[in-house]
Design a protein around this nucleic acid. Structure first.
Lengths: 259, 259
DNA sequence: AAACCTCAATGACGGTCGTCAAGTGAAACC
DNA sequence: GGTTTCACTTGACGACCGTCATTGAGGTTT
């Protein structure tokens, strides 16, 4: 009952041995953020015994759209981008997965292939947990299913808000909103003070695809926002972002309260 | 243990007596399409004893964005539209709920208020099931949670495809896709032959909001598609749709296979 | 160090699509 | 019956934004 399906599912890039100290499910720094936090120690051990860890460098692919789902992927550190490709091969960045997020649970539950690709955007550590393990835990502990249900509900809410934004807001407003979200995420991660420098994890092209526009429009929007002193980009590739006042940025996408 | 919380939650529009013959959970025509189909007869009886039915006319509101979630709503017949409103009061139609769909489960699970409004688009019959009943069933029967999880997963997939479409397709392509979806739905419901007349359940304005554009653009798009013989609108309000060839319509949004 | 590559920035151009306005028809109301 | 109202249609205009092409900066390779 230890590494059953894993050997079939693993390839050279995945660990074949037990992971190093400090990187197991019990000491995992993202543990309390995952859905697995409802599991008992025994149940968590089942995962720990059956998982396979992997380090990914930026650009490395975790899975591709259309791949069969053999299990779920739990992000321990780093940042994973979820993409889809259109007919011309352009990629649309749909979602950014932070440490603690589990990917692929939808494909597992609906018994379909992956509907998007996953790729590391920063150096990341990800654990793979095979279908069999997840399914047995879901049967064994109903609370786990409910946790995933909450997660799916939240993601659905996000997705609908995104649809709403794409429809009702301008490129400028959507971009301002994206920046606010990116700032919020990194602040939550690093607990830095507001107004600090943020290192953007994604390219202009990816940011453009996230808000449904082109890199050129993003560049022009950045120019305008800089001219107005709302944001400041610096550093190599213009990937360092400084926002003097978060309120001013928020005004770009939050309609003024009508007095 | 019968109508406990219901009296608090109900108002004059909801039944206070047991529903008429032919409209209970066991004879409900939408029953096999709902998540509740995994329940035992005893469990289903618990719902049947605690539900409250209601008939809605087009335009009547089931719940509003921001309302507290007191339970879920199960669509038995008709059509319910899920809307959000932007700052100027324009509504965006996010989703069409068909018979068998249960609304509000997300707000229940995430313990938040409703993030959108629900309104009848056709004469509809909807049953209300209080929080307490749903929660006890979720605890009692883990399969129910998993069913809702599958449902959420599917909705999420739909939402992400919608985002993808809004970003990558033109107004014309998105409109063609919307028509194809509407045709598909009514055909599945009525089992008519393809190429038949379809009565559109929603206004131009609503269709426009669904694909993220304006009524004017929809009108112009319709004009062009009609000139090319791809679709034909007739009847009052131009709400009767005829599509001679579904393939031709599909070509508008499905990129040509590159040979 | 030169060649090469990727990504970002910027300008020019054009088209799609949103906005404004007027006009029509159908349903609803008094 | 007349008026109002609302949704749809159609036209004119223009802005936003997407496309194409050029340039430059930074990093990597040989």
């Amino acid at each position: 009952m230890h590494v059953q399906a894993v050997h079939v599912e693993s390839n050279g890039e995945w660990e074949r041995t037990m992971p190093a100290i400090g990187t197991n499910c019990f000491t995992c720094q993202a543990r309390h953020r995952t859905e697995w936090c409802v599991l008992s120690d025994d149940e968590l051990r089942l995962i720990d015994d059956n998982r396979v860890g992997r380090e990914l460098l930026p650009g490395e692919v975790l899975f591709n759209e259309g791949d069969d789902c053999r299990g779920v992927y739990c992000v321990e550190t780093g940042l994973i981008g979820i993409r889809k490709y259109d007919a011309e091969g352009n990629s649309i960045l749909l979602h950014l997965s932070m440490p603690g997020e589990t990917l692929g649970y939808r494909a597992l539950l609906t018994d379909t292939d992956f509907k998007a690709s996953a790729e590391a955007l920063e150096p990341s550590r990800v654990c793979f947990i095979g279908n069999r393990t997840v399914r047995s835990l879901l049967e064994q502990n109903p609370a786990l299913g409910l946790r995933f249900l909450k997660r799916a509900s939240n993601e659905l809410e996000e997705a609908e808000e995104k649809i709403f934004h794409n429809v009702t807001l301008s490129v400028r407003a959507r971009f301002a909103h994206l920046l606010a979200v990116l700032i919020d995420r990194t602040l939550n991660e690093t607990d830095e003070a507001a107004g600090a420098e943020i290192r953007l994890p994604i390219s202009r092209t990816d940011m453009a695809s996230m808000i449904g526009t082109t890199p050129e429009s993003v560049s022009r929007t950045i120019r305008k926002l800089e001219d107005e002193g709302i944001v400041h980009f610096s550093g190599i590739g213009g990937r360092t972002l400084t926002v003097p006042d978060l309120e001013t940025l928020a005004n770009e996408f939050e309609p003024q309260e009508y007095l």
